[in-house]
């Protein structure tokens, strides 16, 4: 399972006339603002280090301007870093030639875009086929793959429609199918659902979750929406001003925000629907009450406790007791305000 698929090492991206000379200024402690003011260079990314595990969904979060879209475009080299390395399956993609990069984009990494970026002059089928055409596949194989993905993303009956004839949600299904059809191991998703209205967004998140169960791709998912991040992410990295301020499991980020910036993100979410019982339980095993699985969300645990009329519960993992919770603690965790004011 947990082998590292992608490894980012000391990645910097600076926009301007002399980007590589700016690295030492950054090392000397210049900030994004002072670098812009004194040297006229824009800091895109600063000393990014992260490992992404095989078949994980790695969410990268941040407000606009935090550098998340810049970062994701490094993984398929739409953007070349100023310095630093990105290792995918033991290959440093920063050292690849143009041709190697093109092959990597054709076979290994595909991408879904915020504004869909479908080809307006091609039908749904022809859009999905495009990645297969650049792969040089023969028509028969292309057709069978199109059929398969049309079916999987629920576009039956729309094969010969043009993108302008589809709603936003349907268009992004095409975007998704187009990216998945090439069978790459890595999917980059740059705020894919941000342009959709809330109901459709949730529907598309479900579509993605269901697909991911089957296909087990390594997904790098960009979003500014914490609810979406928590729902989809196995791991979350939060970017601010081009730097990663915190990374870790969703639970960890909710329970232990490292600073105000992260705390602000987590302030408005429904904690009872995110936090699992095991991450807040006590070690005390000498209590009575119903058993609650460690993976259960607080919301559901509260329901179990109130149903049984018990103040305490025993937390289990694979049916073995591993700790306990009580009602007061659960309520306190839900109401706990952001750690830093």
């Amino acid at each position: 399972m947990s082998n590292i698929k992608i490894s980012v090492k000391n990645l910097y991206k600076i926009f301007g006339d002399n980007p590589s000379e700016m690295i030492e200024h950054l090392e000397a402690g210049y900030t994004k603002e002072s670098l812009l003011k004194e040297f006229g260079h824009v800091l895109g990314l600063r000393k990014i280090n992260m490992d992404i595990l095989q078949s994980d969904t790695q969410v990268i979060m941040g407000l606009s301007g935090s550098g998340k879209s810049t970062l994701v475009r490094h993984f398929n080299r739409l953007i070349t870093p100023t310095t630093g390395d990105i290792i995918i399956d033991d290959e440093n993609i920063i050292k690849k030639t143009d041709l190697e990069i093109r092959n990597m984009r054709r076979h290994k990494i595909s991408m879904v875009f915020q504004n869909f970026a479908l080809f307006p002059h091609r039908t749904v089928s022809q859009n999905i086929a495009y990645g297969l055409i650049t792969q040089g596949l023969e028509q028969g194989k292309i057709n069978s793959k199109i059929d398969k993905w049309i079916d999987k993303v629920g576009l039956n009956g729309f094969e010969d429609h043009y993108p302008s004839q589809l709603s936003g949600g349907m268009q992004q299904r095409v975007g998704l199918a187009r990216a998945l059809a090439t069978d790459g191991e890595i999917i980059l998703m740059d705020e894919p659902f941000s342009a959709l209205d809330p109901l459709i967004r949730e529907e598309m998140q479900e579509v993605l979750l269901k697909l991911q169960k089957d296909i087990q791709k390594t997904i790098i998912f960009i979003t500014h929406d914490l609810d979406e991040a928590l729902k989809l992410g196995d791991s979350i990295a939060i970017l601010n001003n081009g730097e990663i301020v915190q990374k870790g499991s969703p639970q960890n980020i909710i329970l232990r925000p490292i600073n105000n910036y992260v705390a602000k993100f987590t302030k408005n979410i429904n904690r009872s629907r995110v936090i699992q019982v095991s991450s807040i339980m006590d070690d005390d095993l000498k209590v009575n009450g119903p058993t609650i699985d460690g993976n259960m969300l607080i919301e559901n645990a509260l329901e179990v406790l109130s149903e049984k009329g018990s103040l305490t519960g025993i937390v289990t993992h694979n049916s073995k007791p591993i700790g306990s919770v009580n009602l007061y603690k659960l309520i306190k965790v839900i109401n706990q305000p952001a750690l830093i004011k």
Partner: peptide
């Protein structure tokens, strides 16, 4: 640019981009 970026991300060569995307549009 969005559409061109999508073609790039799918590994289209310059000629493919010209013939499949730029000229038709």
């Amino acid at each position: 640019n969005d559409v061109l970026e999508a073609a790039d991300a799918m590994g289209a060569s310059r000629l493919q981009k010209l013939l499949d995307v730029q000229l038709p549009l």
